[in-house]
Amino acid sequence: MTQYTHPKYGTVLRTPDNAFANLPDYPFEPNYMEVDELRLHYVDEGEAVNGTLFLMHGQPSWSYLYRHMIPQFVAAGYRVIAPDLIGFGKSDKPAAGKVYSYQAHVDWIAAFVGKLGITGANAFFQDWGGMIGLRVMEKHPTWIKRMTVANTALSDVKGPMKLMLPNILRLMRFFAGKPTIADLAQKQSYGNWAGYFKHSARIEISKVMQILTTKTLTTAEVAAYDAPFPDSRYHAATRVMPQIVATQLNAAQAAWEHLRQSQVPTLVLFSDKDPFLAGQGIDQQFMALPGASGQPHVEIENASHFLQEDAGVELATRVLAWMAQEASPRQAA
């Protein structure tokens, strides 16, 4: 089955299984859960000897992004859970763009977390994985006991800026026109990013991933990033998400207030060559959280936005050392 009719969302596409055959370094058995009558895929590897670790991806990637990190975490005694957001990877993909609101993504992952019933877990949040996951933490305050934030953000705007920000981003999209992949390669601005995904007749996911990594992807890796999207009909989520980054600002701010009142230990690992977030002070916002005080935050060198590709082994090594250090005085479940 590659297509079916959902009672609420209409046409839903499902990438054929053979599109994912023989992916390099991705031997993980698929797992599926129904959320909101949609099939959500997730990797579930290892035994929770030292705990459970959630790995949350963003747009336009999928759990394949974590393929080099998962074995390290499993070998260290962690159960690793890496879901594919609805609209991405092996998860179902509603064909209508209007389905993909910020709230919908939060609700889908919150339902996933609730059904798993895991508490006291660890998390690695990157890109939209943080924007969604940090809000889910507010809904499920016992879900995460320790988190790493890496090249992610969560809007925290007050006063007049809350009214101005959506208009500012709208103008940036407008003045960018209809950027091509070459325009995005030349300049990774918000306008070019959002404009490319909104207007491009043919979205080239693997080329986007290559633009936002410092390493050179192999031919097989290129194919793996393109695999979830056999044709343009599958791209509704990838098109919409850049357009909704400044929606639900009140909900995002409420999530920030929850974080500021929590003591969840927080490790910040931003990269030095992220064209969107490096040098913007967002890492400092996370470092100001109570649970981030005194933690071994590091800037990951020679890594772009998708730092899991550029420095996956280093990231996993640093996270494992930190989790072991955090757990030693008060061994967690």
Rank of each mutant, 00 (worst) to 15 (best):
A288R: 09
E299Q: 10
L53K: 01
P71K: 10
L212V: 07
T180F: 08
D44C: 06
P160H: 08
W108I: 03
L269E: 06
M161R: 11
Q243C: 04
A76H: 03
T5M: 13
T52G: 01
P27F: 02
E37C: 09
E221M: 06
L55M: 13
Q210L: 06
N18A: 14
R170W: 13
S155I: 10
M161N: 06
P230S: 07
T142D: 15
L249W: 06
L307P: 00
G10S: 08
K273H: 08
A95S: 09
Y4T: 12
Q261A: 10
E299T: 15
P141T: 02
F197D: 05
L212C: 09
K158G: 04
D25W: 01
P94C: 06
L40I: 15
R330S: 14
L53D: 00
D272T: 09
Q295R: 15
Q186M: 07
P230A: 06
F286E: 06
E301M: 12
V245N: 04
H6K: 08
L269H: 09
V43C: 00
E326N: 10
N167G: 13
V113S: 04
T214W: 04
H57S: 14
S200T: 14
I109T: 07
S271W: 02
P71C: 10
P60D: 08
A150S: 15
T5Y: 05
N302L: 13
Y26H: 08
L116I: 02
K139W: 05
S262E: 07
L163S: 04
H68N: 15
Y64R: 01
M147W: 02
M241N: 13
T119I: 11
E314G: 00
I118C: 00
F73S: 01
H57T: 03
M172L: 14
A95H: 07
K8I: 05
E314H: 03
I282V: 13
K187Y: 07
H6I: 11
W62C: 03
R170M: 10
S101T: 15
A201D: 13
A278E: 08
F174D: 13
Q331C: 07
T218F: 12
L116A: 01
G89T: 04
G10P: 07
E29D: 12
H41K: 12
M323N: 06
H6D: 11
L85T: 05
A278T: 14
L269Q: 11
Q308G: 02
F286Y: 15
F270I: 06
V106W: 02
M161D: 12
A110P: 08
Q210E: 08
L13S: 13
L165E: 13
F229I: 08
Y78S: 00
L269C: 07
A194N: 04
A182M: 03
A194P: 02
D44A: 07
R79H: 03
K90F: 03
H258Q: 11
